[in-house]
Design a protein around this nucleic acid. Structure first.
Length: 423
RNA sequence: ACGAUUGUAGCUCAGUGGUUAGAGCGCCUGUCUGUGGCACAGGAGGCCGUGGGUUCAAUUCCCAUCAGUCGUCCCA
């Protein structure tokens, strides 16, 4: 029943995480959840599939993510569904549905999981990627923005990531942004006239994103354009100033970047991003900001909120560049049978050791003593416990300390405790 | 989407228009009747990414395709 050879590679942009990789992931996951609990953030888990409207309405119909990077399809119930391209909107959908954040309350949510974007693939960019995130929902004050930013910076500090740059900006509230967008278009009108219609469309669809454009010919114009800061409402300016003050007070370094905008349309006022010098083109490790209108967009009560998404793959790439190499857990003992007589005892003793909380391995194939010693060595076990007919009759077991190359004799009845104490 | 580059052993990579395609590392067995790393010897393991074309002959040359990597765009 052998057909043509199956393609066993994962789909483009998808990754298998092998045992050699998952240890670093587990390390990162533990670090994140420890950190989240320190700040009082509690986990929420939502489905990977979402109704497409949830994403359309929130991410912005003009964003790249919605227009060309959606993993969407029609399910058997003829619903158009999408593999979530980010985690904030789904979490907020749940907040609305279960009214998790009634008026005048504060809600701290954390999450971690996969998201999907059908985009180009390169270093640090996948079609299935993973992120952690937190959302501080119902927080109006600039303290909320500062808390989320500091949370993120401290998380990276704990991981041992240095060489980070925190970029900070305010893109204002909707009214102010609308005003500024006409300023942008006016300023660029002479230049835009000579561009292809595709470029003109792109500009009109979302003028703010022009700040981000990398085209050479537009750079001089961007230089002379009045900054968005000039058009911010007083309240937005005051918020930005307070955030800067709060970050300064706790020693979080940042850089104001007036050209920082985000790819998702739901942000208001505060936006920030943290970059690593290690990643080059994909320098952004995480991105976040304030989204005061998102809950209302989803049909909930207007609820000011701020959050961040932290890319797991990118954190790992940055960690690796810093020389981070997590140690795989090693067995405490490898139990070896010298000759067939001891196999039963080996099996039972291994079971006893494990039940006592000792990481114990043994051979399952009746291999030679030498082979078992090699397995023990290769496993990185601290001890090799050797059982043969001599040991069975004398009741004195031999325990070999593989690193120290010393052999101890331990009475059979005490061997579990002996190893347990020394592992 | 576009551009560059690469697909040969489990891994890293040589190599050739012509019989059985190689190395290092790793793996297995033995030298060593009950003690690992070191050394030595032996061994297993390849539709040379896939499909087509040129040719007496293709892993090698050509085309296509799929996939990886890197970059542009954008982002986590």
């Amino acid at each position: 029943m052998k057909g043509p050879k199956l393609e066993t590679l994962p789909l483009p942009g998808m990754q298998d995480l092998l045992p050699a990789d998952t240890h670093a992931w587990q390390f990162l996951e533990r670090a994140f959840w420890d950190h989240a609990s320190l700040y009082g953030y509690r986990e929420i888990r939502t489905p990977i599939l979402e109704r497409i409207e949830i994403i359309d309405r929130t991410s912005g119909e003009t964003s790249d993510i919605v227009t060309k990077e959606m993993f969407d399809f029609v399910d058997k119930g003829e619903r158009t569904v999408v593999m979530r391209p980010e985690l904030t909107a789904p979490a907020m959908r749940a907040v609305v549905e279960y009214n998790l954040c009634p008026p005048s309350t504060l809600l701290r949510l954390a999450y971690g999981g996969p998201f999907f974007r059908y985009g180009a693939i390169q270093k640090g960019r996948f079609r299935q990627a993973h992120q952690f995130g937190i959302e501080l929902i119902g927080g109006v004050g600039p303290e909320a923005d500062a808390e989320v930013i500091e949370f993120t910076v401290r998380f990276y500090e704990k991981l041992g990531l240095n060489n980070l740059v925190v970029l900070l900006n305010s893109i204002g509230r909707a009214e102010c942004r609308a005003k500024y967008e006409t300023v942008i278009l006016d300023h660029l009108a002479p230049w835009l006239k000579d561009q292809e219609t595709e470029v003109q469309d792109r500009a009109r669809r979302n003028p703010l994103r022009i700040l981000d454009w990398k085209e050479e010919s537009i750079q001089p114009l961007l230089q002379t354009m009045p900054p968005l800061t000039d058009y911010l409402e007083d309240a937005s300016k005051a918020r930005l100033d307070s955030i800067r003050q709060f970050l300064g007070e706790v020693g979080v370094a940042y850089r104001l970047d007036p050209s920082l905008v985000r790819g998702l349309d739901y942000y208001t006022e505060t936006v920030f991003e943290i970059q690593s010098r290690h990643l080059g083109a994909q320098g952004s490790l995480c991105g976040g900001g304030r989204y005061d209108n998102l809950l209302a967009e989803l049909g909930g009560l207007p609820t000011p909120s701020v959050g961040v998404g932290i890319g797991i793959e990118r954190a790992l790439i940055a960690l690796e560049a810093e020389g981070f190499a997590p140690l795989a857990p090693r067995p405490d003992v490898f139990v070896i049978s010298a000759g067939k007589d001891a196999r039963d005892t080996v099996r039972l003793l291994t079971s006893d050791l494990r039940r006592a909380g000792v990481r114990a391995l043994s051979d399952v194939d009746g291999k030679s003593l030498r082979s078992q010693m090699r397995q023990a060595d290769g496993s990185g076990a601290t001890f090799a416990l050797i059982l043969g007919s001599d040991e069975l009759t004398s009741g004195q077991y031999q325990v070999r300390a593989l690193r120290e190359q010393e052999t101890f004799t331990v009475p059979a009845g005490e061997v579990v405790e002996w190893i347990s104490a020394r592992r």
